[in-house]
Design a protein around this nucleic acid. Structure first.
Lengths: 339, 339
DNA sequence: TTGTACGCGTTATCAA
DNA sequence: TTGATAACGCGTACAA
């Protein structure tokens, strides 16, 4: 890789001149020199050494994407369709803006923080984080951050968050079930914090509004550790007969549940109705096609990245709390019990 | 971020001493000093500035992952389940080895090459590349490279390739179809180069061996541009009635085809049998569950990354051509026509 | 055992 | 209009 210094030597000009031409500071260079240098730069296919530039300018052009993983999960976050869609949108926006993406995936927040500062990352995109992990990062990292899907109070009034109206999404989905005549409706998730807590609230609100009583048995808690997942689904499948519908917190869960039920001869939607959340390829490709809450993860990822890059450039977003609206996509997994 | 120089100043030692302690070159430092420095390092949570280290040592600790994308494709590579599985394995191995991953995804090889040299990437993992793109990269980049799934002759005898026996995989799958009594077997792919070309050869070999004639009509060519994909699948669905089975070059294609067929009232496997390739979540979660060639993309990704990191450390692999064997997983999408 | 000084490639300041 | 030179943070050869 050729350096500025070497170019300067061969062209018998100074490094400053070369640097100026590279950066288009042409006011201070004679047309002749510009021509000469530019031609040479193209010939040798000069590319700057980013490490050197980072050192001199104290900016890295790296956007860090932080994914708090959990070792014991049955699939890696990179295999989760929702995460991938989001990443795909982020990657797109980051590349478009001339930045680079570095993914920091670990179950150890301290390690993540140390990596971030080692690389002197220009800005951070945080998601899939338990709430106080987000705060831990903000304590150590003092450059622009954009959160996705956080509900931590202490974060929300200080940082930008690109969220989704999860409460409303779940509410609408469950309301639809109720309109279809369902009253015994279960709630399926693998946790009850953050996003899924909001969805749970929406679920409860819809039930309450319809005068339907809630019992703890309605909450089907999935255990997604590698050794547990199958048994957990089996256990839940057994409980399901007490309900006429299940609201699932992700398309993936919905489909896995449907498969287990179908394998046992329980038909969807004839015997039980299912609603998912996300509307990704999995739901669209399943048969019967999944009725689900649509959210555009890719678009949201792209927005988050763009907002972050604006922030890095000193442009403040119009609002620090951006909340997108999901909408119901009715397909074939909910049975109408009454007209 | 605190620097070595600052630490040295505060502790009233030299930067060399601090650096030596950091790197465990303890032979040359007195126990007292080591203690003192180490304690301080922990206190201030020292992290080295990687850019500076890169510059000084001419190594970046970055593994570049190159994905040649195509703008017009209906889904991003980051949403392709096969790619994600592979990436997931790579990410894992890279992190474990203390390296960092940078994904270079673009449809412009020249841009990718320039990014790679800008970052002074230590090693490269190449996949999803049309053959001569791989060569173009090797012409410009002269550090360790590991290919995945390349069949370019000029690459194979000079570089490490982690491949799959695609020919045999397709052969086995099609043989299985023939054993089940199928003779009118179509081949579905969106291209006929590299991996899929090999699969096509395996398909042809199995047909030939069974004395089944091949006609160009057997090759169902899918057009996966965003505006074409639906129409293309429709067109193929119409042609499918001439066959009793379809061998698909990916699980994703297989499932999309099955859905279109099922939506038109054509039953799988009763009216037509389908075999896929990859065995990823999509196939496993579909109903009827897909009969498909299994390959462990995650494992292959991990191996590729490990091999590359060995190469970077100067460790040569036992063999430069690693070819994994896929195996058939029989599920529910192939009908037995004879006993 | 410890410290000085230099180089890595780039940018920025300031003098010529 | 151009060119020296210092600075960024780290590692290391060599001197003390």
């Amino acid at each position: 890789m050729i350096t500025i210094k070497e170019i300067a030597r061969q062209l018998e000009v100074s490094t400053t001149t070369v640097s100026n031409v590279i950066h288009g500071k042409t006011k201070e260079v004679s047309p002749d020199t510009i021509q000469k240098v530019q031609k040479f730069l193209e010939e040798v296919e000069y590319v700057p050494n980013i490490s050197a530039r980072n050192l001199a300018q104290n900016e890295s052009k790296i956007i860090g994407i932080v994914l708090k993983s959990r070792q014991d999960r049955y699939i890696s976050l990179l295999q989760d369709p929702f995460v991938c869609e989001m990443l795909s949108g982020m990657e797109n926006a980051i590349r478009e803006a001339g930045y680079f993406m570095m993914i920091y995936m670990s179950d150890d927040i301290a390690e993540i923080i140390s990596h971030i500062s080692t690389w002197n990352v220009d800005g951070l995109l945080l998601f899939c984080m338990l709430d106080d992990d987000g705060i831990r990062v903000t304590e150590k990292y003092h450059k622009p951050i954009v959160f996705m899907d956080t509900y931590a109070e202490d974060v929300l009034h200080k940082y930008v968050n690109i969220g989704l109206d999860d409460e409303k999404g779940a509410y609408d989905a469950v309301r639809y079930l109720i309109e279809c005549g369902h009253r015994k409706i279960a709630f399926l998730s693998d946790n009850n914090i953050g996003v899924d807590q909001q969805r749970f609230r929406g679920y409860r609100r819809a039930l309450k509004e319809a005068g339907i009583e809630y019992s703890d048995k309605n909450f089907l808690m999935l255990h997604t550790e590698t050794e547990e997942i199958d048994r957990s689904f089996q256990r839940i499948a057994r409980k399901v007969s007490a309900f006429t519908a299940v609201f699932c917190c992700s398309d993936l869960f919905a489909i896995q549940l449907m498969n287990i039920l179908q394998d046992q001869g329980i038909r969807v939607p004839d015997d039980i109705s299912i609603v998912g959340f996300d509307d990704n390829l999995y739901g669209r490709l399943h048969r019967p096609a999944l009725t689900t809450m649509h959210q555009d993860a890719e678009h949201r990822g792209r927005m988050a990245a763009r907002t972050l890059i604006d922030l890095i450039k000193g442009i403040q977003p119009e609002s620090t709390q951006i909340v997108m609206k999901p909408h119901l996509v009715i397909r074939d997994t909910v049975k109408r019990l009454k007209e």
